[in-house]
Computed example of a mutant assay.
Amino acid sequence: MPLSQNARGAVMMTLAMGVFTTNDAFVKLVTPEMNVGQIMFLRGLMTTAMLLLLARQAGLLRDIRQMLHRKVILRSTFEIGAAITYISALAHIDLAVAATILLSLPLAVTFGAWLIFKEPVGWRRWSAIMVGFVGVLVVLRPSPEDFVPASLLAVVAVFFTAGRDLTTRRLPPALPTLLVSLFAALTNTVFGAALILPFGGWSPVSGTALMHLTAAAVLLMAGYQTIVIAMRSGEISVVAPFRYTSLIFSLSLGFYFFGEQPDAYMAIGASLIVASGLYAFYREKRRASPLACATEPRVPH
C-alpha cells in the first residue's frame, strides 16, 4: 500500500535526521585534522560526483539549467551559510549540544514565515517560540564560567537552515529534487575551495580522515535528497516534528564516538525546545483544521 503524503514526509524527515546527524559525527571526527573550507571542499567534491552520476543516469543533465532558478540559488546560499557555521561549531562543542540547539529550527522557521512571508502567528505560538528560546539559552549556559562562544555559531546555523527550509517549500513543484541537491553540493564545493586558504590552508589528509569524509559525503547526498523530499511532502505541521528524532541520533552517536554524557542543562534545554516546538505545531494544525476555522475565524494561532 503506498504511503500517504504525510506518512511519506514523516519517514523522509526521520531518515534525513538520521543521515545528517551521522554525517555530522563523521565531520566532527576530522575537524582536528583540517579546517572548515577543506572539509566542505573534499566532502562536497565527492557528493557532487555521486549526484552528477545519478543525474546523468536519470537523464536530468539535459535540463541542468533548471538549477539556475533564483530560488534554487537562494536556497544554496542559505545552505552554504549553514555549512560554514555548523561545521565550525562542531569543531568546538559536543555533537549532542550542537544537535540540541538545532532542534529550535522549527521555531525559527515559524518566525521566518511570519517575518518574510507575513504568515499569521498567534500569541500561543509566540509564547512557544519564547519558551524555545529560553531552552536554547539553557543549553548555551550563558554564565561566564560555562559559556562556550562557539555554540553561538550553532545558533547562527539555525537561522541559515531555517532560510533554506523556507525556500525549499517554495521551489517549483516540477523542479527535480536531484537537481536541487546537485546545485547545493556544487556550490558548497566551490565555496569550500575558496575558504581553504582564509581558514588556514591545506592540511595533509590521512587515510582514516578520507574514509570518514567519504562516509560523510555519501550520507550528505542521502540527506540532501531526503530533506528536500520531506519538505515538499505532506503538511509541514505533520512532517516537521519528526526533526526531533535527531536528538535520539545525536545522543547515541555522541556517546558512541566521543563519549559524550548529556548533563542537566542539556536535558532541561532540550525538553523546553521540544515541548515548545510540538506545541507550536499543535497550534498550527488546530489553526489549519476546518473546526478551528469555524470556531476561531478571527484569531490566528
Rank of each mutant, 00 (worst) to 15 (best):
P2S: 14
S4T: 15
R8W: 14
G9F: 07
G9R: 12
A10C: 13
V11N: 05
M13D: 00
L15R: 04
F26A: 12
F26R: 12
F26Y: 13
V27K: 00
V27F: 00
P32S: 01
P32F: 02
N35I: 03
G37S: 02
G37I: 06
G37R: 04
I39S: 14
M40C: 10
F41R: 06
F41G: 05
M46E: 03
L51E: 00
L52N: 03
A55N: 11
R56Y: 04
Q57Y: 04
A58T: 00
A58N: 02
L60C: 05
L60I: 03
R65H: 12
R65L: 08
Q66H: 08
R70H: 15
V72K: 07
V72S: 12
S76I: 04
S76Q: 01
F78C: 13
A82I: 01
I84N: 11
Y86E: 04
S88E: 12
A91W: 05
A91K: 00
V97M: 11
L102A: 07
L103V: 01
L107N: 13
A108Q: 11
G112M: 11
A113F: 03
L115E: 08
K118F: 03
V121F: 05
G122P: 02
R124I: 00
R125Q: 01
V131D: 01
V139H: 04
L140V: 04
L140A: 07
R141Q: 13
S143R: 13
F147S: 12
V148A: 13
V148R: 14
V148M: 13
P149E: 15
A150M: 14
S151M: 06
S151K: 12
V156Q: 03
A157H: 10
V158L: 11
F160G: 08
T161E: 13
T161W: 13
G163Y: 10
D165Q: 14
T168Y: 10
R170T: 04
L171R: 10
P172Q: 12
P172E: 11
L175D: 10
L178V: 10
L182K: 07
A184H: 10
V190A: 03
G192E: 01
A193Y: 11
F199T: 02
G201F: 02
W202I: 14
M211I: 11
L213V: 03
L213A: 12
T214D: 05
A215I: 09
A217M: 08
L220R: 08
M221P: 06
Y224T: 03
V228D: 00
G234F: 08
E235M: 12
S237C: 09
V238H: 12
P241M: 08
P241E: 06
I248C: 08
S250H: 04
L251F: 11
S252R: 06
S252D: 08
F255P: 05
P262V: 00
P262F: 00
A264H: 09
S271E: 08
L272T: 02
A275W: 01
F281M: 15
K285E: 00
C293I: 07
P297C: 07
R298A: 09
R298E: 14
